[in-house]
Amino acid sequence: MKKILKSLLLLSVVFLLLSACEKQDKEPGVADKVQEMAKSRKDALDNSKVVAQKTELANLKAAINAYNAAEGRFPKDLTELEQFSGSAIDKGVYNYDPQSGALSLK
């Protein structure tokens, strides 16, 4: 009789452990929530960088058009545009064609 009770007790403990493991797999833990928040913040940061680049590109295109209107030609390079606009330009980020005044991100 004692062996049967011990066996039932052991089976009950195993069953409880298995059900706890299944429940834990179905419910996201704190670590999962933290990872999800970190991914969400990274995505938001990446999106804000894209928006900033597009805004800066649009501003530089407007400066190129203003230079063309003032000088009757496009700037020969981004350094000339930088001097005209008075704003620093990260020249390694853009492709610029002085013939057409076309500007794009690399």
Rank of each mutant, 00 (worst) to 15 (best):
L10Q: 10
L10K: 06
L11H: 05
L11W: 13
V13N: 04
V14M: 12
V14T: 09
V14D: 05
F15W: 11
L18G: 14
L18D: 10
L18A: 12
A20N: 06
K23A: 14
K26M: 12
K26T: 09
K26N: 09
E27D: 03
E27H: 09
E27F: 05
P28Y: 01
G29E: 01
V30K: 13
V30W: 14
A31K: 11
K33Y: 06
M37E: 12
A38V: 11
A38C: 09
K39C: 08
S40H: 09
S40D: 13
A44F: 05
D46L: 08
D46W: 05
D46E: 13
N47K: 12
K49S: 07
V50Q: 01
V50R: 03
A52H: 08
K54H: 09
L57Y: 00
L57H: 00
A58V: 04
N59M: 07
K61A: 04
A62G: 02
A63M: 07
I64E: 00
N65V: 12
Y67T: 02
A70C: 06
E71H: 13
E71F: 08
R73K: 11
D77M: 01
D77H: 01
L78R: 00
E80S: 10
L81T: 03
Q83N: 15
G86H: 02
S87W: 13
